[in-house]
Design a binder for these strands. Structure first.
Length: 277
DNA sequence: CGATCTACCTGATGGC
DNA sequence: TGCCATCAGGTAGATC
């Protein structure tokens, strides 16, 4: 489900709304959402700690604790973090419930159960959560210069979509935003990264930063199934600005050619066959 | 090593 | 109405 803009929307709201709250009770049901270490350890490392803030690295959400540890959440395809009063009925597929001393709960809801929560000490990431240390640069939080970005493009001989969605190069971009970024840049998904002119590299870089930031302003993209919602269950609005994603058969806003859909590397890919070259 | 595939799951949708 | 196939925002691990 969520890519960088959706995770950033959740991070922003959590940072504002649960910082300072103390964890009274942690309940884990089901076996898949907490799968690193035991449930008991997970619960013990959280109960009694106070939340100090919420950070993000790529698509990982890091909820920081006064114990100096992090509660790390990855939503994968269908995970949601929802804030609600304890008395409110829990949605189907609620797997983890965190109750705060000051009242209210944070629920982790995830129909497909690909999502994951775990607690780590930032000092032992290399052994406890190596995937967090293997992330590339964050295009919103930690944008590198376009020159450096160009060097990365030249160093890899990858198709552009593969390049943008490789979390070890750029952290946070997935299937929706790679298609939107490439359309904004006027580049095809299957161009090789080392074939770009300096002007095209600059255009790709600028499109990446702009599309992601615009999407954050619109509080992310919710598709027809509304699987992505913010911490209050509200949908995002960036889908209204999508230029290609899920728009096959519709005219391209830039050149009026018909948007095409293809299966590429196992994923649906949407692009304009005329103005993306 | 890179590339390609499959698996992990539930649920929505569309064709027949 | 049901039944079956296909698809979905992600990623890791096996296999070639």
């Amino acid at each position: 489900m969520p890519e960088l803009p959706e995770v950033e929307t959740i991070r922003h709201d959590l940072d504002r709304e649960i910082s300072g709250r103390k964890i009274k009770l942690v309940e884990v049901t089901g076996t898949r959402s907490v799968r690193r270490g035991t449930k008991k350890q997970f619960i013990e490392r959280l109960q009694g700690t106070k939340i100090t803030g919420a950070k993000r690295r790529g698509k990982f959400l890091l909820i920081t604790l006064d114990s100096k540890e992090w509660l790390v959440v990855h939503l994968r395809m269908s995970g949601q973090l929802l804030l609600a009063p304890a008395k409110e009925a829990k949605p189907k597929h609620t797997h983890v419930v965190i109750t705060f001393q000051q009242g209210g709960q944070m629920r982790f809801v995830d129909p497909r159960t690909f999502g994951e929560l775990f607690v780590v000490s930032p000092d032992s990431l290399a052994t406890e959560a190596p995937e967090l240390t293997e992330l590339g640069f964050d295009p919103v939080d930690d944008p590198i210069s376009w020159i450096k970005f160009g060097h990365l493009l030249l160093a890899k001989r990858m198709r552009l979509k593969e390049f943008l969605t490789d979390q070890s190069i750029v952290a946070g971009i997935g299937n929706i935003y790679s298609d939107e970024i490439l359309h904004a840049a006027g580049l095809r998904y299957d161009r090789t990264s080392d074939s770009l002119s300096p002007q095209e590299m600059r255009r790709l870089y600028r499109s990446m930063v702009e599309v992601l930031n615009e999407a954050i302003k619109a509080r992310g993209s919710s598709l027809a199934d509304e699987q992505y919602v913010d911490v209050h269950g509200k949908v995002g609005a960036f889908q209204e600005q999508h230029q290609v994603y899920a728009r096959e058969g519709l005219p391209c806003a830039r050149c009026r050619a018909t948007i095409e859909r293809t299966k590429w590397q196992g994923r649906s890919t949407f692009y304009c066959p005329q103005c993306q070259v």
